[in-house]
Design a protein around this nucleic acid. Structure first.
Length: 321
DNA sequence: AAACGGACCAACCGCTCACAG
DNA sequence: ACTGTGAGCGGTTGGTCCGTT
């Protein structure tokens, strides 16, 4: 199909920067009649623009709920985290950032975040050190996630991506299609301080199970940087909400995160391979240890959540179907 | 002061997908 | 099943700004 048909037909249409008059015409029209058929907007407004151009101008500039100005640290962290899972799916990433457009996010990524990662020696595509490979991750990661048909996902990132996409479908009406986004400050704040700005050295707690896995490894940091920490970086940030909500559905936008956890926990509990008694012991130990190490309350919860993964003896987490 | 180059960002282009006829 | 159209998305471009030489 190629070029948008309405733009091909009318090659006399104006291009380039929008004038304030054009903006006013479009703004007045949309605020009065709402968003309908974009292709008819030029005719109805008298604008010498194609419908596609009108749509873009509204979405990227005129929409009243747009957030202007610099990206906050929370937004930056969120973009990094989501990009690690979703890749260049700017629209999906932007849908989690109230008031930001895909264009905003894309420009911010290309002009700042991408360079920042490169500067830190991280591959902007994988968010891992330049010399790390996906194979290494699969090889070293102690948790294997199976697809519904029992075939393991090729990597943690693939599994997380799949889970996120399922979630995105579920929450689409709440996140993507709303004209006015419901801003939930909790959602963004939950990312704060839980995710390293690098998107790499996330808050990945080393559980007893992990320590077993790491026996003989003189450098725990090396294990931490095996490329598998992308999973905890997504899972740790919402524990507080999850614990309070009992892993149930909620209207909070942070249910993305609880969804991820629910997925894993449902899966682990349904797994016949889970070593449950060891799991409870580990949980108790973790709480006690957390107190002993003067961890704060959040860290305890982190530990509990982490247990849900680390306690799976069979190294399997089957996503629920 | 002028030239240059990099950063930023608005807008365009080309493609896919969904849907109606 | 096929075709045309509209909507949406990601990649890219080009203009402007600003700092540096």
């Amino acid at each position: 199909m190629g070029r948008h048909s309405s733009c091909v037909k009318h090659n006399k249409l104006k291009k380039g920067i929008w004038s304030p008059e054009e903006d006013e015409k479009l703004y007045n029209y949309i605020t009065r009649f709402g968003i309908g058929c974009w292709s008819s907007v030029p005719k109805l407004t008298g604008l010498q623009r194609c419908g596609k151009s009108c749509r873009l101008r509204w979405i990227n500039y005129l929409r009243p709920d747009l957030k202007r100005g610099m990206f906050s640290q929370e937004e930056e962290d969120l973009i990094l985290t989501l990009h690690e899972v979703l890749g260049n799916r700017w629209a999906q990433i932007a849908a989690q950032l109230p008031g930001r457009t895909d264009n905003d996010v894309k420009n911010f990524w290309n002009s700042y975040l991408k360079k920042k990662l490169i500067k830190q020696g991280l591959d902007p595509n994988t968010h891992k050190p330049m010399n790390k490979t996906e194979e290494n991750c699969t090889e070293k990661c102690p948790v294997q996630i199976l697809e519904p048909d029992g075939i393991p996902y090729s990597s943690i990132s693939d599994a997380m991506r799949q889970i996120f996409e399922e979630q995105t479908e579920i929450s689409r009406e709440n996140f993507v299609n709303k004209q006015v986004y419901e801003y939930d400050p909790l959602f963004l704040s939950e990312f704060q301080a839980k995710v390293d700005p690098t998107g790499y050295h996330s808050n990945f707690l080393i559980t007893p199970y992990d320590q077993n896995q790491m026996e003989g490894n003189p450098n725990p940091n090396q294990n931490q940087g095996s490329g598998c920490d992308s999973l905890p970086s997504l899972l740790n940030f919402d524990h507080g909400y999850i614990m309070e909500s009992g892993f149930s559905n909620s209207t909070s936008t942070s249910r993305i995160n609880s969804f991820l956890m629910n997925k894993a926990i449902e899966s682990s509990s349904s797994s016949s391979h889970m070593n449950s008694h060891a799991g409870f012991d580990q949980m108790n130990n973790l709480i006690e240890n957390a107190a002993a190490y003067s961890w704060d309350a959040e860290s305890k919860l982190d530990s509990i959540i982490q247990f849900q993964f680390s306690g799976i003896k069979s190294e399997e987490i089957k996503p629920s179907i």
